[in-house]
Nucleic acid binder design. Structure first.
Length: 506
RNA sequence: GGCCCGUUCGUCUAGGGGUUAGGACAUGGGAUUUUCAUUCCUAAAACACGGGUUCGAUUCCCGUACGGGCUGCCA
C-alpha cells in the first residue's frame, strides 16, 4: 500500500452523533498513524433528507474535535468535488457503463408498485428470481424499453446481481465474511431523480478518490457484498479498498444501537456539539456545551471499541495515533458509558495547566456576567480543578469566587454559630488583619495559634470561616482562599456573613 | 422470517490450550485531609450454555441460546 487514504463520509441529514465522531476519529487516527491522508466527503445524495445547516454542523464538530481533514469541501484537495451532489453527472455516467456492460439494467417499477409487492409478500426481493416478472429492460422487449426511455418515463438503474455466486469480503476487523449472491437483491444504483444511491456513489467516489481503506460502522457490513460486486462489475476488484467495519456503539441502558433520542431520554449528551432547532424534540445538547474538553471526549471515544493492549488509559491525540491499529479494534458492540466519559474529563481537567483551564473556563464565567482578570481566573482554576468533573462545575461549585452568595449552608451554621460567636470571631478577624505576610502558611499558623490560645478546636472555628467565606462546606482550603482574596476582601466577606448568621439566631 | 456479525466482572476491556483470568469506570470498606475533592490501600465482581478436538479448554471447531445489524428509488 503506497499511500493510505481514508475517508469520513457523513450524510448531512442532521446532527452527527457520537458514533459518527468515533468513525471520523478512527479514520483520522489510522491516516495519521500511516502517514496518510484523511478525507472528508459529504454524502448528500438524498435530496429528501437534506437538512440545512447539517454540513456546517459536521464541519464545526470536526473542528472542535481537532479532526481536521486534509482534503474535503473547503479544505482543498486534488480529487474534488467532495460533495456528492456536486458530482451528480459522474454517477449517471458510471451507471450507464454498468448497463452497457450488462451488469445493470433499467427498471420502471414505481415505488408504489414495489410497496404493493412487499405488502403482498414480505419476503419479496427484487432479484434474479423475480426480476423477469417485473418491469425492466431485462423483462421487457427492447423496443418497449426504448419507447419508455424516449418518452421520458422515470426509471432507476439496478445492479444485476448474479444468481448463484459466493462473495467473499475480507474485513480487517472480522476476517473473511461470505455471502451468497442469491440472498442479495438487485440494489438501485441510480435513483429516479438522477442521483445515485449510497452504494454506487461510495464505490465510484472511493475509486476516483483513490481511497485505500474504508473504515465505517458495522451497519454497512451486509451491503458490502453489493459493493464488492460493483467493484467487480467495473473491473476494479484488484484495486478495491480494504474494509474495516467498526462495532456499533450501544445504548447506555437496554439494547440497541445508540440513537439521537437516547441522550434526551437520559439527560446526557450523545452529540459532540449542540444542535439547535425550533422543534424542541429535535434540539440536542452537545458534549461541548455540557462542559467536556474535546481531548477527553476523544480519549473516551477511542476506547469504545479499541484498546491498545496496554494498561495506559490517558492518551493525547498524538499518542492515540501512534498507538492505533485496525487489528486492535474489537468485534462486539460497546455500550456508551457516560460515567466513564465524565471520569476522562475529570482526569483531563486535573491534568491541565491553570493557564489552559482559565482559557477554557473564561467563557463559562463570562456567560454569568463576570470578567475576572486572567490572573484571578488562573488562581481560581488552580484551586478548583481537583474538585470538578465538567467545565460547568467551575461555576456551579465556585460561583462565590465571583459574587456574594445568597444561600449558604445554614445547617452547619445553625450548629456552630451561637450568641457568643461574634464576640469570639471579631478578635479572630483582628488577628487575621495582623498577619503581615498574607499567605496560606502564615494564615494557618496564626489561626492555629489563636485556636490554641482560646482553648478551641479546629471544628469550632474552621467551618464558620469556610461557610462565612464561601457559603458552602465544600471547597478549597480556607487558608488558600484567604490568601487569594487578601485582607480586605476576607474581612468584608466574613463580616457580611456574620450579619447573615446572626439572623439565624433571631 | 431470511441473511450477516457478535458473546471475558454491572460497564469498557487485556489475555490466550495449562494464568491466583490482569487493568479501568462504577460500587463497598479503610487511611490521609479542618470541609469537599484529590491521593493511597482494600473488598466484592467475569470467561453464556451444550457437545466435540486435546493429556488439558475460557482460549480451537460445531451447535444452541441470547444480543446486535441489515433486509428502501435512506445513508
Amino acid at each position: 500500500m503506497s499511500h493510505i487514504r481514508a475517508r469520513f463520509a457523513p450524510s448531512p441529514t442532521g446532527a452527527l452523533h457520537i458514533g459518527g465522531i468515533r468513525t471520523a476519529l478512527y479514520n483520522y487516527l489510522f491516516a495519521k498513524k500511516m502517514g496518510g491522508t484523511f478525507i472528508l466527503r459529504i454524502e448528500d445524495t438524498d435530496q429528501t433528507r437534506y437538512v440545512p445547516g447539517a454540513e456546517e454542523y459536521i464541519l464545526e464538530a470536526l473542528r472542535w474535535c481537532g479532526l481536521n481533514p486534509t482534503e474535503g469541501p473547503g479544505f482543498g484537495g486534488d480529487y474534488g468535488p467532495y460533495r456528492q451532489s456536486d458530482r451528480k453527472a459522474m454517477y449517471a455516467e458510471y451507471a450507464q457503463k454498468l448497463v452497457a456492460s450488462g451488469h445493470a439494467y433499467y427498471a420502471f417499477d414505481t415505488p408504489e408498485e414495489l410497496d404493493a409487492a412487499r405488502q403482498a409478500d414480505d419476503t419479496f426481493k427484487y432479484d434474479a428470481k423475480s426480476r423477469l416478472g417485473l418491469k425492466n429492460s431485462l423483462s421487457l422487449p427492447a423496443a418497449e424499453v426504448e419507447k419508455r426511455l424516449a418518452s421520458g418515463e422515470p426509471y432507476v438503474i439496478r445492479l444485476k446481481v448474479p444468481a448463484e455466486e459466493t462473495i467473499l469480503v475480507q474485513d480487517l476487523v472480522r476476517g473473511e465474511v461470505s455471502f451468497q449472491s442469491k440472498e442479495l437483491d438487485d440494489k438501485v444504483m441510480l435513483k429516479g431523480d438522477g442521483m445515485p444511491t449510497y452504494h454506487l456513489a461510495n464505490v465510484v467516489d472511493d475509486r476516483l478518490m483513490k481511497i485505500t481503506h474504508v473504515i465505517r460502522g458495522e451497519e454497512w457490513l451486509p451491503s458490502t457484498a453489493h459493493h464488492v460486486l460493483l467493484y467487480r462489475s467495473f473491473g476494479w476488484e484488484a484495486e478495491m479498498p480494504q474494509f474495516a467495519h467498526l462495532p456499533l456503539i450501544l445504548k447506555p441502558t437496554g439494547q440497541g444501537k445508540l440513537s439521537k433520542r437516547d441522550g434526551m431520554k437520559l439527560g446526557i449528551p450523545v452529540f459532540p456539539i449542540s444542535w439547535n432547532s425550533d422543534n424542541p424534540e429535535d434540539a440536542f445538547v452537545g458534549f461541548r456545551e455540557y462542559g467536556f474538553l474535546p481531548e477527553a471526549m476523544l480519549n473516551f471515544l477511542a476506547f469504545l471499541g479499541w484498546n491498545p493492549g496496554t494498561e495506559q488509559e490517558m492518551f493525547s491525540i498524538d499518542e492515540l495515533a501512534a498507538a492505533f491499529s485496525l487489528e486492535k479494534i474489537g468485534k462486539s458492540g460497546a455500550r456508551f458509558d457516560f460515567e466513564k466519559a465524565r471520569w476522562f474529563n475529570q482526569q483531563y481537567l486535573m491534568a491541565s495547566s491553570n493557564e489552559a483551564l482559565a482559557t477554557a473556563v473564561k467563557p463559562w464565567i463570562a456567560a454569568k456576567g463576570h470578567q475576572p482578570s486572567d490572573e484571578y481566573l488562573q488562581a481560581f482554576c488552580g484551586l478548583m480543578k481537583e474538585r470538578v468533573v465538567l467545565l460547568s462545575d467551575f461555576w456551579d461549585n465556585g460561583a462565590y469566587f465571583f459574587e456574594d452568595f445568597s444561600v449558604y449552608d445554614d445547617k452547619t451554621i445553625g450548629k456552630k454559630w451561637t450568641t457568643e460567636s461574634r464576640a469570639l470571631f471579631l478578635p479572630l478577624l483582628d488577628r487575621i488583619d495582623e498577619v503581615a505576610n498574607f499567605v496560606a502558611s502564615d494564615l494557618q499558623a496564626n489561626i492555629e495559634a489563636f485556636i490554641a490560645e482560646q482553648g478551641l478546636k479546629f471544628g469550632d472555628v474552621l467551618p464558620i470561616l469556610r461557610v462565612g467565606l464561601t457559603g458552602t462546606m465544600k471547597g478549597p482550603a480556607v487558608f488558600d482562599l484567604m490568601a487569594l482574596w487578601g485582607k480586605t476582601e476576607t474581612r468584608r466577606r466574613l463580616l457580611r456573613s456574620f450579619d447573615l448568621f446572626d439572623q439565624l439566631l433571631g
